[in-house]
């Protein structure tokens, strides 16, 4: 049933696409789904496409890993220590509403035009989301969980490992999953200049050359990358948060 609904949704999207492409230039400007998918299928056989995909996936995966590595532990520390939170929370919440993407020129000035700047900008944006979600999640943890484990003689490290990390994981994964969309969007933005590799470059370059088929190869590639990341985070959560799936039998 679930499968049927998904197929129905896909069919509806393809149908709307078809109508749009027919309305706008009869397939000459906006390729219809058959043209786009056949171009996509053909490009799968070219090293050019895989190069772009590899560059894009590498950047976004590295960014996600970096964001997680920095924000997850920091969120736990902020959520569990009033002292640390009292100092860091004002800093985080003053900068939180700033759209980090406008910092792009600053990041480019400081870290150059290469991959480092691109990765840093995506991690910064994603990291904030993970940080805030984990901090709030840990701060709302019932302190009795900590008391009960403390009564077993737990030290700081035990509390971290047995209570805080598992309590924070679902919050971190929710933020990461929602963040995959944002991450790919920012990826597109940072790949649209100062590089000749990546799906974002492929899209903008094809657009400039008026090669709408290649453009759609890039668009489909980025869409699939986004979907794959979303599913990957889902899968990771599935494995690492098994108790969330446990149902009363």
């Amino acid at each position: 049933m679930r499968f049927v609904r998904y197929v129905a949704a896909l069919a509806a999207i393809v149908l709307i696409w078809w109508i749009l492409s027919a309305l706008f230039g009869g397939g000459n400007i906006l390729p219809d789904p058959v043209q786009a998918f056949s171009a996509f299928g053909a490009s799968l056989g070219t090293p050019m496409f895989w190069n772009h995909l590899a560059a894009s996936s590498g950047r976004v995966l590295l960014s996600m890993a970096l964001a997680w590595a920095a924000a997850f532990p920091l969120g736990i520390v902020m959520g569990s220590s009033r002292k640390v939170d009292a100092w860091l929370a004002p800093f985080v919440f003053v900068t939180y509403p700033v759209p980090k993407i406008v910092l792009l020129p600053v990041v480019l000035l400081l870290f150059g035009l290469g991959n480092l700047s691109k990765v840093l900008l995506i991690s910064l944006i994603l990291g904030y989301q993970v940080l805030v979600a984990v901090r709030d999640g840990v701060a709302n943890l019932n302190p009795r969980y900590l008391d009960s484990v403390r009564s077993l003689g737990a030290g700081r490290l035990d509390l971290f490992r047995e209570v805080l990390v598992p309590a924070a994981l679902p919050h971190g994964f929710t933020a990461l999953r929602l963040g995959t969309g944002t991450s790919v969007a920012v990826l597109f933005f940072v790949e649209s200049f100062a590089t000749t590799r990546g799906l974002g470059y492929l899209i903008m370059d094809a657009w400039g050359r008026l090669d709408y088929r290649d453009m759609f190869v890039g668009i489909l590639g980025m869409s699939l990358l986004g979907a794959a990341l979303f599913e990957a985070v889902n899968g990771l959560e599935h494995v690492l948060c098994r108790w969330r799936r446990a149902r009363i039998r």
Binding site: N142, R144, Y145, D147, S148, V149, L152, G153, A154, D158, E162, V163, P166, A167, L169, C241, W243
Partner: peptide, 23 residues
Amino acid sequence: LQDFGLLPWKTVQDNVALGLKIR
């Protein structure tokens, strides 16, 4: 404790063994 004594993310066996693990 009344509530929240067991950790939801650990199986029954791991909850029971937690004190021993910490030791």
